[in-house]
Design a protein around this nucleic acid. Structure first.
Lengths: 137, 137
DNA sequence: GGATAAAATGTTAGGTTATAACATAGCCGC
DNA sequence: GCGGCTATGTTATAACCTAACATTTTATCC
């Protein structure tokens, strides 16, 4: 994770706009949904969105949710561990978690077979606290 | 995982063809690559492939690799734990692993926040033993 | 400050991946 | 055979992503 305190300060205009749109959303957004929201700001083509997203991911300020084809602003915490995303299939809300032990387990599982891990994707689908409580009542 | 011994016996024609194509491949295949390979068998439209894939995933005979937009035949083991996929970014080879502790930790991380897990996605990108050894020599 | 290189942006076009909608055909229990 | 269910066929379209190339902005060095 190449994330430091200056990361946000060195953002370009497009990067800032995309990051702000993601931060204001209460759910992960697809690239074309971002494009829709940023057209008032002058965005015209998907590539403008994709390029900004790639750069923000590189800086560690945005994560891509592989199972949703969507993107979300990183929680504000500095983190070196692989994030774990909990995705509510009812309301679409996504939360970011960390666990040192879990990160260690992943290394262990693959290294048994001589595999050298680089980046990990952990996404858990289910029901968040709010939605679970509602349906049980 | 709804997988039992009779799962394979109750496959329809399209499902059998898709599963066989995946089993014969030495790498995960995309839906359109599957379509190409199955056109000699009479497949004509993407939906035929996607429907068979969905049904095979439901039966637990095929897994989808979210970060590759590709699909792979399940290893033959009966498994109740969430599979962990190790994906070599050099040669494209993918291996399926299991770890009870890892599965337990994942539940733990999300349940802290009242989340009820349903299905988990764990995909680790990196370098497999073969590719790592080669580049180091 | 001006030359230069690197990074970011603009724009058009096209490729890949996945689903909607509707019609048809086979299977199974009653 | 009838009704309900599952699977299939087919056309069209939506959603997601990248290539290629031109232009502009930013950073750096002298």
């Amino acid at each position: 994770m190449k994330k430091d305190n200056s990361a946000k300060q060195s953002l370009t205009k497009n990067q800032s706009l995309v990051l702000q749109a993601l931060a204001e959303a209460d759910q992960p957004l697809g690239a074309y949904e971002l494009l829709n929201r940023l057209q008032p700001s002058g965005f015209k083509a998907p590539l403008q969105v994709y390029r900004a997203l790639d750069q923000l991911v590189e800086k560690g300020l945005v994560h891509r949710l592989e199972s949703l084809n969507a993107w979300t602003a990183c929680c504000e915490d500095q983190h070196s561990y692989t994030p774990v995303f909990a995705i509510c299939d009812d309301c679409g809300n996504v939360t970011e978690h960390f666990d040192e032990q879990l990160a260690g387990n992943i290394e262990k599982v693959t290294k048994r077979s001589g595999f050298t891990p680089d980046r990990s994707i952990i996404e858990i689908h289910g029901q968040c606290d709010d939605c679970g409580t509602i349906t049980q009542s």
